[in-house]
Design a protein around this nucleic acid. Structure first.
Lengths: 138, 138
DNA sequence: AAGTTTCTTGCAACTTAGTTGCAAATACTG
DNA sequence: CAGTATTTGCAACTAAGTTGCAAGAAACTT
């Protein structure tokens, strides 16, 4: 249990490398979805190269350990899948003013009923509005 | 009632110009959210310049006539807001195989209960999976 | 209707997020 | 510990969208 990051790599049958461990630790520590740039910042002065970060994230997404989402802009955000249930990710909230995105973990909504013949992989809910802090600031 | 596009421009207090009418007509005809490129294609040989398309869409989004969403990739998609209710847009479905996105108009889901102090502007639901056609193809 | 003002357009150059090819470096296997 | 397969970092590239600016077009004013 000491190193959850190593454990995750093991379960995904990926080699243990410094860049991958650093990326997973950043995601484990975060409570919001992170961009490549935020991950690089989190991993300190000798952060992995951005190509490595993107490639690692792609592998983790393929292994279904990480979810990728396009929230309020054209920058991909990544987060560990461990707070999501099989077909549903927790909702995300983005403030129109401060542009911060947060996870509404614990909240769930019924799955939408799809038309006949369709199968669901994942339902995502994204809400935008004004967060509490910005409400008070104005 | 002949020209819904002109009507929309009027209601938004925007000048009547050919590029704007063409863009609105493309959106009116579409039954899925469109990208800038798709709008350009729809508007024929002398389509407006892409800068014009983006600027027009931005204005229409500000006037709340058009909704902008980042669905499955980092390309913005635009659609008229007329099938959405005040705080909720109809769900969208993207097929993982053919990459087509469609609107599930008519379907609605309860609004997620936000934490105290938060206000909602819009709730969007995005589902991905396999569409009927792709199901049959495999 | 002509002149004036203000808004709108198109172009070219730029920015930003993400991708690709490739050679050097590193993890695992026997 | 040597050998192989995978991973990494770099530099160059691509694609989506933005910006500045001069020319063109709507609408407003006589």
């Amino acid at each position: 249990m000491q190193d959850k990051a190593a454990e995750l790599l093991h379960s995904a049958k990926l080699r243990q490398t410094e860049p991958r461990l650093a990326i997973l630790r950043a995601l484990l520590k975060a409570d919001t979805p992170l961009t490549q740039e935020q991950i690089a910042d989190q991993t300190g002065p000798d952060a992995p190269n951005k190509t490595t970060i993107y490639r690692t994230l792609t592998q983790l997404v393929e292994k279904n350990l990480v979810h990728q989402a396009y929230l309020d802009d054209r920058t991909a955000h990544f987060e560990l899948a461990h707070h999501c249930s099989e077909h549903q990710c927790h909702p995300h909230f983005t403030c129109r003013q401060c542009r911060q995105t947060q996870c509404l973990t614990g909240i769930k909504s019924p799955l939408v009923q799809l038309p006949k013949g369709y199968t669901i992989e994942r339902q995502q809910i994204h809400i935008d509005g004004i967060c509490e802090k910005c409400q008070h600031r104005s």
